[in-house]
């Protein structure tokens, strides 16, 4: 293989690949389209059947989230060729994304706790504190 084809930093050159690459692209396209159609079907199903129980709706929404993650996996792995990179590179991209586990859990729980507080006490914690204590006059300047 002609090593001038890419940067001298690159040690192992990928074979460019022929028809089988195009076939893989077409297969991935079909998979992405089918997943999108299933997602739309589930979304419309929830719309057309408004009497579904809230547990079932939650289950369907969870299924749609998992299907979207599957789409992300195919786009990153096949279209962006991340699957063909060496393992250390893949890990430096994937491992930091684990921060999302905390990020999503913490903030969504915060949002739902906010709603619970408002619904049960009529107000958020901040509003309760502000209401129970009259706003103090401006404190004298702190001494250093």
């Amino acid at each position: 293989m002609d090593h001038h084809q890419s940067s001298p930093e690159v040690t192992l050159h990928h074979e460019p690949g022929g028809k089988e690459v195009v076939q893989k692209i077409i297969r991935t396209t079909v998979i992405l389209s089918v997943i999108t159609l299933i997602e739309l079907g589930l979304g419309l199903g929830m719309y057309l059947m408004p009497s579904l129980s809230s547990a079932l709706v939650l289950f369907i929404k969870g299924a749609i989230v998992i299907l979207s993650l599957l789409k992300a996996f195919y786009i990153v792995g096949v279209f962006m060729h991340l699957g063909e990179e060496i393992k250390n590179l893949i890990m430096t991209i994937i491992v930091p994304l684990l921060l999302f586990v905390w990020f999503i859990a913490a903030f969504l729980l915060d949002g739902s706790s906010w709603r619970n507080l408002r619904n049960t006490n009529g107000k958020s914690r901040t509003e309760q504190v502000n209401q129970s204590k009259p706003v103090p006059k401006e404190a004298p300047a702190a001494q250093h």
């Binding site: 040690t11 060496i86 250390n88 590179l89 430096t92």
Partner: peptide, 13 residues
């Protein structure tokens, strides 16, 4: 990979 002169991740900068 890590002794220099090449990308340890085998990709261009």
């Amino acid at each position: 990979w890590w002794s220099g002169g090449r990308s340890p991740f085998n990709v261009e900068y």
